[in-house]
């Protein structure tokens, strides 16, 4: 495992998953003894083909799914019924389709939804909403109807809906899917400016290369690789084995940042 951002010695990892097994209700095994530890402030890409179990893993990280066996810890605290509200506040999940994430009639209501449920006093809500929207460059959209925003704007507002909960970990499911190149660049800038731990489920290898120093490959429910992103992307045999592919002409040299 590559420690790119070394966490303070005493701080517990932001996320820790140990021997996580999950079987679908029909008995198929979705996750097969997954081990993963993500330090505070790390940015990690979770790569893998369709059906690898990436989204299923993400849904365990804030207790939407309950493991068949194994442990999930958030900031050192095990996910359980008792810790559920704290865990869901601490781990912000951004789903793939912003139309699923943005279910309220207005943007501001959507951004306020989490904080209101997590018991933030109503007096602090407007400020929270404003800061979260400002962080993704959408402060002017507070009063809008989500259907009037572009897809890229909706994606950014979707991120604001969890930022307003002030999470310590952001889990993004395919954040660049369906984005045009300009919206993709805007999103990269937004994500790069955030001061949180990030786990990003993606097929978009250049995006992972740009933002995440570390990459993990999940395939058929198991972790297959866990290393520095340039190293993972340079291993063409590994990529091919897990149906991952760099865009034509893309050279994953050392990151220049």
């Amino acid at each position: 495992m590559v420690d790119v951002v070394s966490p303070a010695a005493s701080a517990p990892p932001a996320l820790r998953v140990e021997e996580l097994v999950y079987d679908y209700p029909d008995g198929r095994r979705a996750l097969d003894s997954v081990d993963l530890e993500i330090g505070q402030g790390e940015r990690v890409a979770l790569l893998g083909p369709n059906g690898a179990g990436k989204t299923t893993l993400a849904l365990h990280l804030n207790g939407i799914l309950t493991p068949s066996s194994g442990v999930v810890e958030v900031g050192g605290e095990a996910v359980s019924n008792e810790s559920l509200a704290r865990v869901r506040q601490a781990v912000g999940l951004v789903f793939q389709d912003p139309d699923d994430q943005l279910f309220m009639p207005t943007v501001a209501q959507d951004v306020a939804f989490g904080p209101l449920n997590f018991g933030v006093p109503e007096g602090e809500i407007p400020d929270r909403v404003h800061r979260a929207l400002a962080a993704v460059g959408m402060a002017d959209a507070a009063d809008s109807y989500p259907g009037h925003l572009s897809f890229g704007q909706r994606r950014r507002v979707a991120i604001a809906t969890v930022l307003s909960c002030e999470p310590s970990v952001l889990v993004l499911d395919e954040p660049t899917s369906n984005l045009d190149p300009a919206a993709r660049r805007d999103l990269a800038e937004v994500l790069d400016s955030l001061d949180v731990t990030v786990l990003m489920v993606t097929h978009d290898l250049p995006f992972a290369w740009q933002l995440c120093p570390r990459s993990v490959i999940l395939d058929a429910g198991r972790i297959r690789a866990d290393a520095a992103t340039p190293e993972v992307l340079a291993d063409s045999a590994l990529l091919a084995q897990h149906r991952l592919e760099l865009p034509f002409g893309f050279d994953p040299g050392p990151r220049t940042q």
């Binding site: 509200a85 869901r88 912000g92 999940l93 699923d100 279910f103 309220m104 989490g114 209101l116 969890v162």
Partner: peptide, 19 residues
């Protein structure tokens, strides 16, 4: 529904009158 649960949905309608 999953997205709502992820953000602590508890059935109340507080957020719908916001704004």
């Amino acid at each position: 529904h999953v997205a709502m649960l992820s953000r602590g949905y508890d059935g109340s309608a507080k957020a719908w009158s916001l704004g």
